[in-house]
Design a protein around this nucleic acid. Structure first.
Length: 971
RNA sequence: GCCGAAGUGGCGGAAUGGCAGACGCGAUGGAUUCAAAAUCCAUUGUCCCCAAAGGACGUGUGGGUUCGAGUCCCACCUUCGGCACCA
């Protein structure tokens, strides 16, 4: 009984591919190669729970593209690796004492086994893990590049891509040092050289004398240390980047996060904000992802304006995008942390101001969000002078102004800004309208505003600028302010510099040392490890418990790791922070091209050959962070001449999330724990509404809370276009939820493979719907595609025989024209669908083919053979087995992809619709080449059309050859 | 609130401005079987009609463009995703 036996076939071919190294890709293209193709999956974090069904979705898609292109003769790079640093392995270490490296290795082994089980054609010889010292050696090396680079925003240059740019990351040795800093000891010109890491040469220059210069350089590096309020998460024992904090809680684990000032490594990604935004234009990415990134970067163009203090002394600089509303300024607001606050606060207000600042400093982001509903603030007692009209403006502090955006101070124009409006209303500050809607008169005698007017319009109450449209006003006043020396155009970004240090063990150590003075205290001066001394390995540790304080884990490392004395006798202490998980994933796509290179992070020739990645597939959750960070690193490497492509990823596709199986739910009156069993208690979903707190549903009329009853499919039936409780009119809800342990709807790929086989899982993941779309899982859907594979198997194999032999119906006979037409139609459709990544429709076409030939007797071999090749990228194991059965000795992996011939596709007769006034009235068979006139004649003569046209006036006839005929009639 | 994506049978989904619902699931009927599983065949948007023939209605809602709209334009509603005091 040679039934389709997935386990036997799949293990046989997985072993074959392994032993024959079928998918190992040499870096030199084969003689007849049709060009290179680099297809990359976002590599997974190898978690302890193993592969999720979401993983194979993207992986199958890329595997199909890769297998297809290999057969087309492409030189294809398709690697896989592990993003393996991260908190879970370390949390496990805290609990069990198992070293994170051990846990990580175990998890990687599981992931590798699972991926191999699914038959993906990765070149496993290129496998890498971010935790390999061989790998993170180069992560540290790239960090040193960042450390050795400053951004020159005015530098004009032409890159290896032939494009002109303004702004470049340059060696720190080329940073111009201002005279006053250079001091007594002028630096030699051109000190240091590009490509050699570290800005200091301890033996060449006495660095004590250069201390000021070194500190100046340190302030300008792309990797720098700053003391700033950061998100400290006590539960995780680490600080988190803004991006890792959601609603005041940690993204991972939802632990509370507090703000506190700490010294941290930062990466100056803001220097690249413009290029990161602008160079998105040419990328083959979905517009929605580009929009997400632009949104995140949040570039805004406005003006900085100086308001002199009424008390004299320094001025307050504000940032505004609406300099045209300067005449409407009725107060100013400084962020509570603003450095001028102390200076302007009057003695009478000091107590109130100090108290407010103290409270604000304690507030976590969550608290600030909660308070957002109600504006708070305190008057400082100080006044500023509005430069356009010399008006005295009171200065307040309020936490709705952020110290980290713009200048940390605003001019408040309540008439034309929502937030200022709310604030002014609450504290009874005057509101002056200075912009009127177009065509609403000149504004003299304007009614008081009922709400802030935030649109553009025409200036009023603005002196000589009255009547100017907003855009013109902005340009004019910006120029006027600049001429007067009190303002200038300015650009701001929502994007902040990237907080790059964490306080945990299981991350890349920094290749940095801190100089210590005689008393053992840090001097604030740093030294970098040399490139040759890398990697900086982790110290040996027994205890992985967090310190419980913001002091990094590595501070508990043994002294021999922590301290050393440099050649010049200076005592050094190692940097004890570690890099965040994002670091390793920023450049793995480069290392895959050359993962064994011990001399460089990537061979320049290989970078030039393989980069950029031609197709990058992964989840949309990485739309902002990972993709923005890698682009940033890539651009720095580009500026420093280490890579020749300006962007890492040419085409990007996001796979949609896979939800759990749809669940049926009915709602009933009564409390959740006591659900009345009688039907009267049940309520139709149409009579319910979402609960105000977002949790559960309530009765629409009364707002009464309803309890939720899970149903099985046999408890419902369809009636009148709805799903109802059996025998009732009560409509129930059918919805799919995100897979989660708590809901118990997680599907394990291992189980699916055990029951249906890897080919069925692959096929189902692709058949569910468009790759990019969110879709619910369905076990009976898996069964459906598995039945299709069974049919395909029986098309080739005689199940009544004792052995696996070719079906006797398969014969070397000449196919009919109709059979050839079906074959070539299928080849064309499948080929074009793969090119479009429209895998679900490609599978449909193959199902149709199978429905056509599956039970046909006899079946021409010449028609069936190409079908196996079409199927092979989707279901490679069964395809290899059938290919072998058909008598082929070689794996089909490099067999030429079938081509179609248009001549087989033409049909002699086609069916076209006949419409009257656009409505379908009949269908007729016509010769394929019939022209418009003969179409019309045939249509008019048709038995059901003729009577309908009789006695009516034909106004117009639209006849499209090969398409349709439409009669437009009157009467 | 802002930005983005999407609304098509009982379900997943298909459809260069030209036959809506391909393909699959589910369901129903039949064949095969001692019986079942598996398999094969047929039917399956809703409604009118005894039935057939035929007809009416159908792609979130309301308008519009067009000989013709699921598809293009305008307004709105709903769901999902992201951002959210960013001046």
């Amino acid at each position: 009984m040679p039934r389709y036996d997935a386990p036997r076939i799949e293990s046989k071919w997985q072993k074959f591919w392994d032993e024959h190294q079928t998918f190992v890709t040499p870096n030199t293209p084969p003689a007849n190669a049709q060009g290179k193709l680099y297809v990359l999956d976002m590599f997974p974090y190898p978690s302890g729970s193993g592969l999720h069904v979401g993983h194979p979705e993207g992986y199958t898609a890329t595997d199909i593209v890769v297998r297809y292109n290999r057969m087309k003769g492409g030189h294809v790079l398709h690697p896989m690796g592990w993003d393996a640093f991260g908190l879970p392995a370390e949390e496990h270490a805290v609990k069990t004492g198992t070293h994170p490296a051990v846990t990580t290795k175990k998890n990687i082994d599981t992931f590798r086994r699972q991926l191999k089980m699914l038959g993906f054609s990765y070149d496993w010889s290129r496998e890498l893990s971010t935790t390999d010292p061989d790998y993170y050696r180069w992560t540290q090396w790239i960090f040193l590049q960042l450390f050795d680079t400053w951004y020159d925003p005015t530098f004009e240059w032409t890159g290896p891509d032939g494009k002109q740019r303004v702004g470049k990351g340059r060696p720190i040795s080329e940073l111009p040092i201002p005279e006053e800093i250079r001091g007594l000891e002028p630096r030699a010109q051109g000190q240091g050289s590009a490509g050699v890491v570290s800005g200091h040469q301890p033996s060449a220059i006495g660095h004590q004398r250069n201390e000021a210069v070194r500190r100046y350089q340190d302030q300008h590096r792309l990797a720098y240390i700053s003391e700033a309020p950061v998100n400290w998460c006590p539960a995780l024992g680490t600080v988190l980047a803004n991006e890792e904090v959601i609603d005041g809680k940690s993204e991972r684990g939802s632990h509370p996060v507090v703000r506190m000032p700490l010294k941290q490594w930062m990466l100056r990604i803001t220097a690249y904000a413009d290029r990161l935004a602008n160079e998105l234009d040419d990328l083959g990415w979905p517009d929605s992802i580009k929009a997400l990134q632009r949104n995140w970067i949040g570039r805004s163009v406005g003006a900085e304006v100086d308001f002199a203090l009424a008390s004299g002394g320094s001025a307050v600089r504000v940032y505004t995008t609406r300099p045209d509303t300067l005449f409407g300024v009725t107060y100013m607001v400084l962020a509570p942390e603003h450095p001028l606050v102390d200076q302007i606060t009057t003695p009478e207000q000091k107590a109130a101001v100090d108290e407010y600042r103290r409270k604000a400093s304690l507030k976590s982001d969550l608290d600030r969000t909660d308070l957002a509903k109600d504006k708070s603030g305190v008057f400082t007692g100080g006044y500023a002078i509005n430069p356009v009209n010399n008006a005295r403006v009171p200065i307040w502090i309020a936490d709705y102004v952020l110290s980290s955006y713009g200048t940390g101070a605003i001019m408040a124009v309540p008439a034309h800004d929502e937030r200022d409006w709310e604030f002014a209303k609450k504290f009874e500050i005057p509101i002056i309208q200075v912009v009127a809607e177009e065509g609403q008169g000149d504004g003299s005698g304007t009614q008081p505003l009922k709400a802030p007017f935030t649109e553009v319009g025409v200036a009023i109450n603005s002196g000589k600028y009255n009547g100017l449209p907003t855009a013109e006003f902005k340009a004019r006043i910006t120029a006027d302010l600049a001429a007067a020396g009190v303002g200038k155009e300015a650009v701001n970004y929502r994007l902040r510099d990237w907080l790059f240090s964490r306080q945990r063990y299981w991350g890349e150590p920094f290749p940095i040392w801190h100089e210590l003075d005689a008393a053992g205290n840090p001097t604030g001066l740093m030294r970098a490890d040399t490139a040759e001394s890398l990697p900086v390995l982790h110290p040996h540790m027994e205890d992985f418990k967090p310190t419980g304080t913001p002091a990094p884990m590595l501070a508990k490392a043994p002294d021999e790791w922590l301290y050393k004395t440099d050649k010049d006798g200076v005592r050094l202490k190692r940097e004890t922070n570690s890099m965040p998980q994002w670091a390793g994933s920023c450049w793995y796509y480069l290392r895959f091209c050359d993962n064994k290179n011990s001399q460089r992070f990537i061979d320049p020739a290989l970078e030039k050959y393989w980069l950029p990645v031609d197709l990058y597939v992964g989840g949309a959750e990485h739309a902002v962070l990972h993709l923005l960070y890698s682009r940033f690193w890539h651009k720095v490497l580009f500026d420093r001449g280490h890579v020749t492509s300006p962007e890492p990823f040419g085409r990007l596709v996001n796979q949609g999330m896979i939800l759990g199986e749809a669940e049926l739910t009915a709602y009933a009156k009564g409390s959740a724990d006591v659900v009345s069993p009688d039907l009267d208690a049940f309520v139709s979903i149409k009579d319910t509404a979402e609960a105000p707190d977002g949790d559960g549903r309530v009765l629409r009329e009364s707002g009464e809370a309803l309890s939720l009853v899970k149903l099985t499919p046999d408890q419902v039936e369809k009636r009148g276009g709805n799903l109802v409780l059996k025998g009732t009119e009560i409509v129930v809800e059918s919805r799919a939820f995100k897979m989660s342990k708590s809901r118990g709807n997680v599907i394990n790929p291992d189980d699916v493979v055990k029951e249906y086989g890897a080919d069925s899982l692959r096929l189902y993941e692709m058949f569910m719907g468009p790759l990019e779309q969110v879709k619910p899982w369905s076990m009976s859907g898996v069964e459906g595609v598995s039945r299709f594979l069974g049919r395909a198997w029986r098309m080739f194999v005689d199940e009544r025989a004792d052995e696996v032999v070719l079906h006797p119906a398969i014969q070397d006979i000449a196919p009919t024209n109709e059979q050839l037409r079906v074959l070539h139609k299928t080849i064309k459709a499948v080929t074009e669908d793969i090119e479009k990544l429209s895998f679900n429709t490609a599978i449909s076409r193959m199902m149709e083919f199978c429905n056509e030939f599956g039970t046909l007797e006899p079946r021409p071999r010449a028609v069936l053979e190409p079908f196996v090749l079409l199927l092979s990228p989707f279901a490679p194991h069964i395809a290899e087995e059938l290919w072998e059965l058909l008598g082929h000795r070689e794996s089909l992996s490099y067999t030429a992809w079938p081509t179609w011939d248009e001549k087989y596709l033409v049909e002699s007769e086609i069916e076209i619709p006949i419409q009257i006034n656009g409505k379908l009235r009949a269908k007729i068979m016509v010769p394929a080449g019939a022209d418009a006139a003969s179409l019309q004649k045939l249509a008019e003569a048709h038995a059901t059309i003729q009577p309908q046209l009789a006695g009516k006036q034909i106004v117009k006839v639209v006849a499209v050859p090969g398409r349709m005929v439409n009669f437009v009639v009157k009467g």
